[in-house]
Nucleic acid binder design. Structure first.
Lengths: 70, 70
DNA sequence: TCCCTATGTAAAGCACGCTTTACACATATA
DNA sequence: TATATGTGTAAAGCGTGCTTTACATAGGGA
């Protein structure tokens, strides 16, 4: 599942380490999620959304909304 | 993490089996999530939210929003 | 050059999400 | 009674989310 975490993080001038600390996860976890290696758990997705003050659906994109046309 | 899935499901007259089939998971998975035995993965949370046409944050509650007063 | 910060990645290990199979119980209906 | 549907739960097994430790690379500043 795609996400905008790297853009949101760098826009705030934070390192992966700093964001991990703020969300109580390791920097490797932030790196893996940014790289799309795996999706965060739902609780971590909530923490990310709250941290960036955005709805989960605006940060993550599971690709089910933009089917064909438009 | 608490959720309103049972209420949303029964309001639509669906069995756990029927909801599971609609979301491509087993009925045991629906049962476990309704019972709060574990949280769904983020992709499944998206499918649930889309199915019920609600934002993820309105279906799930990780309890971090209602701190103290109010 | 040396050091420090930031990032990428890998491996081992543990806990959780989800599966299938299976058994139990309640309610309804023939 | 027998059969069917809906639900609760358990166990084994597999893949993933996240951890710690560790090594490598790149860029900036002393």
């Amino acid at each position: 599942m795609k996400n905008d975490i790297r853009a949101l993080r760098t826009a705030r001038g934070l390192s992966q380490e700093a964001l991990g600390t703020a969300l109580d996860v390791s920097r490797q976890t932030i790196n893996a999620i940014e790289a799309g290696r795996y999706d965060p758990s739902l609780p971590l997705a909530f923490r990310l959304a709250r941290f960036f003050a955005l709805p989960i659906e605006e940060i993550f994109d599971d690709g089910a909304g933009e089917k064909a046309g438009s």
